[in-house]
Amino acid sequence: MTQYLLSVHGPAERDEFGNYGSEEAMEAAFAATGAFNDKLQADGYWVFGGGLEPASTATVVDGQGDAPVFTDGPYLETKELIGGFWVIEAPDLDVALRLAAEGSRACAGKVEVRPFQGMG
């Protein structure tokens, strides 16, 4: 079994409907994502997951020097950023890709699938 990070990428700037276009579309995506989360848990793939607050709420911390340096905002100033993620456990990439496709449809965003390093 391998653990995979499924990260959802979308516009850094969000409007009042979270870039879903309308309140109805936003509600529908939330409901579909909730149902997908329930299914991941019922089928035993779920490890962790959640949506993130907008990137403007992020703080970058550099603790490599004598005193930590804090910088307001996200590490990468890009137009598209991670907006949420799941960590799943799956037997192989085919299963992970299938779940990512379901998750992508549910939350109406593109999903990047990336394996965690082996636990040995």
Partner: peptide
């Protein structure tokens, strides 16, 4: 190896 691409013929549905 790292992402776990399986060594198998896909199932009939895929």
């Amino acid at each position: 190896a790292a992402a776990g691409v399986p060594f198998r013929v896909p199932e009939a549905g895929d």
